[in-house]
């Protein structure tokens, strides 16, 4: 099972980024091998619009079935949901903390976007 985290860093000790669409990177953790890959999302930092949509496609492309992030807007949510990815809103400081919560079953999948879009 693969779990994606929004982040600005490259390790498990780096912060969980509160933003989804404009997170600089995604860390994708594989619970079976207990290893991870980091996927770049820099191109969406300055996207004029639709950053969440594009980021959702990137996460879908990693094969992750779960996404742990701070907040998720309506367009990103729509794409993630269509891709069958479960979304968890977390307040954890680091990815390691968020992963611990996720593995303990302390995070509940979100049924809707938790913030407004920035565009419409």
């Amino acid at each position: 099972m693969k779990v994606a985290f929004s982040t600005s860093g490259n390790t498990l000790n780096d912060p969980l980024d509160r933003r989804f669409g404009r997170a600089p990177k995604f860390l994708v953790y594989d619970t079976e091998t207990e290893s991870f890959d980091v996927v770049d999302n820099e191109q969406n930092l300055n996207a004029p619009q639709g950053a969440g949509i594009q980021s959702a496609q990137i996460v879908a492309g990693t094969g992750a079935g779960h996404l742990v992030t701070g907040h998720c807007g309506p367009n990103a949510f729509k794409v993630l949901q269509a891709a069958g990815i479960k979304i968890y809103n977390a307040e954890a400081a680091t990815i390691a903390d968020a992963l611990k919560l996720f593995l303990a079953g302390a995070l509940k999948p979100s049924g809707s976007a938790d913030v407004e879009g920035h565009w419409v």
């Binding site: 950053a51 949509i53 879908a60 729509k78």
Partner: peptide
């Protein structure tokens, strides 16, 4: 994914299951 990679406004998303259009974008 040809459509979504072409669209610089991210108005169309492409997944294995099909495409999603965001008319407002």
């Amino acid at each position: 994914g040809e459509c979504s990679s072409f669209c610089r406004f991210h108005a169309i998303a492409s997944l294995d299951t099909g495409a999603i259009v965001f008319p407002e974008l």
